[in-house]
Write a protein that binds this DNA or RNA. Sequence first.
DNA 1: CGGCTCATTGACCAACGTCAATGCCGGTGG
DNA 2: CCACCGGCATTGACGTTGGTCAATGAGCCG
Lengths: 245, 245
Amino acid sequence: MRKTQHLISKLEQFTGLGGEEKQALEDAVVGVIDYRAKEDIILQGDRPDHVHLLASGWACRYKLVPDGGRQIMAYLIPGDLCDVQVALLDRMDHSISALSACEVYTLPLASLSDLMNKYYTISRALWWSTLLDEAILREWLVGMGRRSAEKRLGHLICEMWLRSKAVGLTERTHFEMAVTQEDLADTMGITPEHMSRCFQTLRGKGLISTDGRRMTIGDLDHLIAFSDFDPLYLHQQRKVAFVRL
Amino acid sequence: MRKTQHLISKLEQFTGLGGEEKQALEDAVVGVIDYRAKEDIILQGDRPDHVHLLASGWACRYKLVPDGGRQIMAYLIPGDLCDVQVALLDRMDHSISALSACEVYTLPLASLSDLMNKYYTISRALWWSTLLDEAILREWLVGMGRRSAEKRLGHLICEMWLRSKAVGLTERTHFEMAVTQEDLADTMGITPEHMSRCFQTLRGKGLISTDGRRMTIGDLDHLIAFSDFDPLYLHQQRKVAFVRL
DNA sequence: CGGCTCATTGACCAACGTCAATGCCGGTGG
DNA sequence: CCACCGGCATTGACGTTGGTCAATGAGCCG
């Protein structure tokens, strides 16, 4: 399998890619690094000279606040680029950390930049992926402001199920949600204790069930309705990925 | 004064622009539209064929949720482009509405696209501005998850003071904050009643005072400290805009 | 077995929501 | 000029979501 398979699956939601373009992406990968859970990949203030492509596992963008709290601002799954933005911004305004064990491919910033100059399609597709990140961020903000913690959890499960599906990591009814309840609590702006209570509720309603990190969706239609989930914001233009279970 | 003066001031935080580039931007403006407060500029689902540049007044990005609630996800001030992203995404995943009376310039999507092909600097500067939007969104999410409503309000005031300053719309200690408390409540995910209480607190501490829509910062250093404000996320690279009052 | 991390539970508490009423102010028409 | 109106801000009493603290379990691994 190609190293860039997940990335290509992701980009192909938006546009077709030719064989030459796929090979060029593949050739840009120069190294691989392993991280353990909770290990930092990039720190706030860094100015990385490589772009990081997540190959396996889950990671997150986060910031710490003075009182010691952590706010997670994005989940990164296989196929996601961690830091395209550093090409333009002076330095990282947030940190990135592994949530589970992760494999990360490195691509020299210069190669990626060449590639974007040479292949208009790749350039557009990468720009599209940053706009998608932004759209997800907006939807999370809506959740934080206007949805209960339980609905936010349900919403996130729907989102990650679809995003995993788009890169080929979802089974029919279940997928690997490689995070702890504490991570989820830091995502939703609540405490781990309350996160646990939210899980009870969703399980009690028969919407989900869990076995370790494996998340099984018990009743997709009702989960969607309960969570007020509308996949429009994921902009999955080319494939109708959102089929019934 | 140039129509694109505010936009140019904004972009020059990031990069220098030559006279030819400035003129090209100016020439791309083809029309102007007036909106009254509360009027929608773009609706969710739209696919505008023009890019909108805010010339005066304040606007916002927002989404509605089923129970009737509104979540504001960004403020737009003079010099901000409303919808560069629609060039790539299929359609708007959120709406944009005027918060005060607004003047909006329109630029044909095709002209802007030509301009970005011809002038690498402009292309980079516009990309930078979308990354900035994303950085602001992340910081708002941190606030929603991990800061009290009072601190969020203080933080927003610091942010808008700086952003207004970057486009030349801030006096020494005060600026026009063209929004109602209800708008602010919909921004922070709280109720107007609670927003009012937050204002009392900040006024009581002597951090701010208000006169209609005019926001006066009483004690910048303490407001910054109180709000846990760090301007790093605004990525104001070229100018040290963050001088003391 | 012991030590770790993660999930869960319960009792109590604080931030913020809800509802209902009041005040303020600028605009407008008689 | 004044009465009235509509939009916005404010206040108070009380309710709810989610926080805090402290303890207990449950699984995993050396």
